[in-house]
Simulated scan of single mutants.
Amino acid sequence: MPVGTERSIVTGIDGSRSAGNAAIWASDEAAKRGLPLRLVHVFTIPVVKMPGWSPRSKGSVRVSRAAVGHGFPR
């Protein structure tokens, strides 16, 4: 299969409640269809150093872990 044509379920996450709901829905769909789940998060690296800034949004990481655990329990 050519690169980029693999079927998967994709949703964007940003740490919001709506994104969390979308991630849970996507997780369920991926599990039902036997497809990979891809959670996408985009961030901008600031030009100046900001105290306490991290490229990993705590909200997005939490939502990702919860969604993956919801649809794909260990």
Score class of each variant (00 low, 15 high):
I24S: 04
S8L: 06
G71E: 04
R74F: 10
S16R: 00
P2F: 04
I9C: 05
A22G: 13
A31W: 10
A67E: 06
P51L: 13
R7Y: 04
H70C: 01
V40A: 12
L35T: 09
V47S: 13
A31L: 06
R38S: 05
P51S: 11
R38Y: 13
R74L: 14
P51Q: 10
A66H: 10
A66I: 15
G4R: 10
R17F: 02
G20E: 15
M1F: 07
V61D: 08
A22R: 03
S54T: 14
K32F: 08
R62W: 03
A26W: 00
R56P: 01
P36R: 13
L37G: 03
T44W: 08
P36W: 07
S27G: 09
G71N: 05
E29V: 09
V68F: 08
I45N: 07
E29T: 09
R56Y: 15
S54V: 04
V42E: 06
P55M: 11
K32P: 05
W25H: 13
V48T: 11
V42K: 03
L35Y: 13
T5V: 09
L37Y: 11
L35A: 05
R38I: 14
G12Q: 03
F72L: 14
S18W: 12
G12D: 02
G59D: 07
A31N: 13
R38N: 11
G20L: 02
P55T: 07
F72V: 02
I24Y: 00
R33W: 08
F43I: 09
G20K: 02
T11W: 01
P73Q: 05
R62V: 11
E6P: 02
K49T: 13
T11F: 00
T44Y: 13
V68S: 06
P46W: 13
D14H: 02
M50E: 15
T5K: 04
L39F: 12
W25M: 10
T5D: 12
S16P: 01
D14C: 03
K58W: 09
R56V: 10
G12T: 12
A66K: 11
P55F: 01
R65I: 00
S16L: 00
P73T: 10
F72D: 02
A30P: 11
S8E: 15
R33L: 09
V47N: 11
H41Y: 15
